[in-house]
Write a protein that binds this DNA or RNA. Structure first.
Length: 752
DNA sequence: CCGTCAACAGTTTTT
DNA sequence: CTGTTGACGG
């Protein structure tokens, strides 16, 4: 019960929460079930340390799982304290690592303005290396090689150790052993870190420099780690280094929500915490404040199937709750239709007030497409997390590559990406000559490009292009030390004439142009101190460097707009830590969830089950689960049964449904209620093969307005072919000109 | 050097 | 199905 005399951060905490909050020194493990108020406890304890124990904010390091969580934590602490916790470090492991490396990169051979390579950039480098060391990228999948390197780094295995541990019998290992050292050498040469380096290199830094280690141990007298169940070896070692001395370490996590084993996360970190940090106090938070009893019962039954866990049962004071709907549908389109219908039905009734209360969760990103189509055709607003990220769009990556090169002239991956964008007459041959010459002279590509006339076997046009390009980059590099990133970017785009260039590419270029404009707007609004959360370092780095760092470490969930009134679509992994009044879990089929390959590996099935548990516990009021008898995957059809995970859910919690007259409905949809509707899937045309002759099929003529499920509306420019091979060329308002085979495209006549 | 067309592989989850 | 890669001709 709240006491009148309690400071605000201790109000209305239950006894266990309070115990954790008031813990002062020594190791503390908080086993916090889903929805048990762990974020509250974390923030309240920080406030308690500052407010009651007189600890200074700059003595505290708090690590969260996403940037968004970090921002929220900072805001909540500010709210409770009535002021900013100035000097406190709050961020993800990657952000904290990047910050340490910015400060001390020179100790381990990197420049202070290093680049951060995302998965895409590091994959390019892996490919380059494979070619140069003779590991054929066609035979040895670069993604697989990259994954091996990533795993090694998460396990703190450096190239030397990797080579030593390779027996030579495992061919993949043997190839990785050839690629990894050269890959790492090239990263260093161009002063770049990949994501995994942001975890591994800080460990190396602290292990090699005892004085730095001492300094940070003394600075951070209190360390807090959220989502501890998802830490890997590198992260564990980092925490151990910083907090191992004084042992003032609070970790919060839930072994039942460990879902990143495939990324190197080691569930033993949380299971064995008490061995690693002797004398640890353990507090369990089992009171759930989020979900109805029905939802919680389902979650408890599901997770009880797992063997490898500490064991706890969530309790709630809420009783009853709406039954969990289990919906069987025909295929993924039918599933999408049911979900969207249900959302509309709820919104029509009083049970749902806004779209933002709803989330649709799924196992794989590929499932988003059918769902999106469904939302679009019903005109229900939605936002997708994942799929195509803003920063991964081609035009955005191009612009960012310019910025990276301006910030770090040694960034070879960035150089190669944009040296011929826009076209400057620098092709593969020119680039190859440049590479060789640069290597011989020991210069970076940019330096070599500046002296392009010296290279004998270069064409005049190529050399001119190189010099122009180098000059452009150099000019901006000089400005970058003074200018704000927004101004810099605006001028750069202007100088390149990029927007104009994109618009010339046609309607979809205009779209790209808009994206670039959005990036500029983002850069103009960029406030380094706010975004980095590390105010005391802001002055020592350029605005550009900090902007690039934030962009590189920005997760897609971080961009989720909670203000938008839209349904959220995302993977179950992305849903971790979030909650929604109404949750749908789609694709509940054996083989999809759990994925078929989960049966190959011992621990994988339990991890999938934990993922299901995470999904269930996101729901506050209503949970609906759907599965489809048939689903298109990678081109062809799969037929699946209901997921075996559902066996653990007691049937008295469930209400089973089928899509009404499902079989009939999809046939009826061939023509639909609206005139002119024409929707044929190739599965059906296989049997029929007469669809081109179908007398009822609408005929399209030039100039007619049409509606496409994904491309939107447009006008027909041309109709060609006959029978089943009718092709139409359509100018779409949003996506430009497309040629479509009528048989595949679900085109409707657009009635004004 | 650059645009176009055919062949091809891909789907597990992410900082 | 869809986006990316390789071969070819201008």
């Amino acid at each position: 019960m709240p006491e009148a005399s309690s400071p605000p951060h201790l109000e209305s905490l239950n006894p266990e929460q309070r115990q954790a909050t008031e813990h002062f020194e020594g190791p503390l493990l908080v086993l916090a079930g889903a929805g048990s108020g762990k974020t509250r406890v974390l923030t309240a304890r920080v406030c308690n340390l500052i407010h009651e124990q007189g600890i200074l904010p700059n003595q505290i390091l708090a690590v969260t799982f996403t940037n968004k969580a970090a921002g929220e934590m900072r805001d909540r602490i500010s709210g409770l304290l009535g002021r900013e916790p100035a000097g406190m470090w709050i961020g993800t492991f990657h952000a904290v690592g990047a910050r340490l490396l910015r400060r001390h990169a020179n100790h381990i051979g990197w420049e202070k303005s290093f680049s951060i390579f995302d998965a895409d950039q590091s994959l390019r480098l892996v490919k380059n290396v494979q070619e140069s060391v003779g590991v054929d990228p066609k035979q040895w999948n670069p993604k697989a090689i990259r994954a091996e390197i990533s795993n090694a780094k998460n396990d703190l295995i450096n190239p030397g150790m990797f080579e030593d541990n390779t027996t030579g019998f495992d061919l993949v290992q043997k190839n990785v052993a050839r690629v990894y050292p050269e890959y790492q050498r090239l990263l260093e040469q161009q002063s770049a870190f990949d994501f995994d380096d942001l975890l591994m290199k800080p460990v190396e830094l602290l292990e090699k420099n005892k004085d730095l280690l001492t300094r940070y141990r003394e600075q951070f007298s209190f360390v807090l780690v959220d989502e501890y169940q998802d830490t890997n070896k590198a992260q564990f070692r980092f925490v151990e280094l910083i907090a191992g001395g004084h042992g003032n370490l609070m970790v919060v996590g839930d072994d039942d929500q460990s879902i990143y084993g495939w990324r190197g996360a080691d569930i033993r970190n949380i299971l064995d915490f008490e061995q690693a940090f002797p004398g640890a106090r353990v507090v369990r938070l089992e009171q759930n404040y989020r979900s109805t009893k029905t939802i919680l019962d389902a979650a408890n039954h599901v997770i009880a199937q797992n063997v490898n866990r500490k064991g706890k049962t969530l309790l709630t004071e809420r009783i009853g709750g709406e039954a969990i709907t289990l919906m069987e549908s025909l295929d993924e389109n039918d599933e999408a239709r049911w979900i969207t219908n249900d959302i509309e039905r709820r919104l029509g009734g009083a049970s749902l007030s806004s779209y933002r209360s709803v989330a649709v969760l799924y196992r794989t990103n590929a499932q988003a497409r059918a769902l999106e189509d469904g939302f679009r055709s019903k005109r229900i607003p939605y936002q997708v997390v994942g799929a195509v990220r803003f920063y991964e769009r081609r035009e955005i990556q191009d612009v960012l590559a310019y910025l990276r090169l301006i910030s770090n002239p040694r960034d070879q991956i960035a150089f190669e990406r944009v040296v011929n964008y826009p076209r400057r007459g620098v092709g593969l041959t020119t680039l190859e000559h440049l590479r060789q010459w640069a290597r011989k002279q020991g210069l970076s590509l940019l330096e070599a490009a500046e002296q392009a006339d010296q290279i004998s076997d270069l064409r005049a046009s190529g050399a001119r292009g190189l010099r122009q390009f180098a000059k452009l980059v150099r000019d901006f590099s000089i400005r970058a030390s003074q200018a704000r990133v927004g101004e810099l970017l605006k001028e750069l785009i202007e100088d390149m004439g990029l927007i104009r260039h994109l618009c010339d590419e046609g309607p979809e270029g205009e779209d790209r142009g808009r994206n670039v404009s959005e990036l500029i707007a983002g850069a103009v609004d960029f406030e380094a101190e706010r975004a980095v959360g590390f105010e005391d370092d802001v002055d020592s780095f350029t605005d550009l460097d900090l902007f690039l760092q934030v962009v590189a470490l920005d997760a897609d969930v971080d961009r989720l707009d909670p203000g938008a009134d839209a349904v959220t679509l995302m993977t179950l992994h992305n849903a971790k830590g979030l909650e929604f009044p109404v949750v749908f879990i789609a694709g509940m089929e054996e083989g999809l969830f759990p994925l078929g390959r989960a049966y190959d590996e011992p621990g994988a099935l339990e991890e999938e089950r934990r993922l299901f548990y995470v999904g269930i516990t996101r729901a506050v009021e209503t949970l609906s689960i759907s599965w489809a008898r048939q689903r298109r995957r990678a081109g062809d059809f799969t037929h699946n049964g209901l997921s075996s995970f559902m066996e653990a859910v007691p049937s008295n919690l469930l209400e089973e449904q089928k899509t009404e007259r499902a079989g009939f409905l999809s046939r009826a949809n061939l023509h639909g209620r609206r005139p002119g509707r024409y929707e044929v899937r190739d599965s059906y045309s296989e049997a029929g093969s007469e669809y081109g002759m179908d007398q009822d099929a609408p005929r399209f003529v030039q100039g007619e307005r049409v509606l496409h499920e994904t491309f939107g509306s447009g006008a027909i420019v041309e109709v060609s072919g006959f029978g089943r091979d009718v092709r139409v060329t359509v100018d779409f308002e949003e996506v430009g000109r497309k040629r479509l085979l009528l048989r595949y495209a679900s085109l409707e006549k657009d009635w004004p």
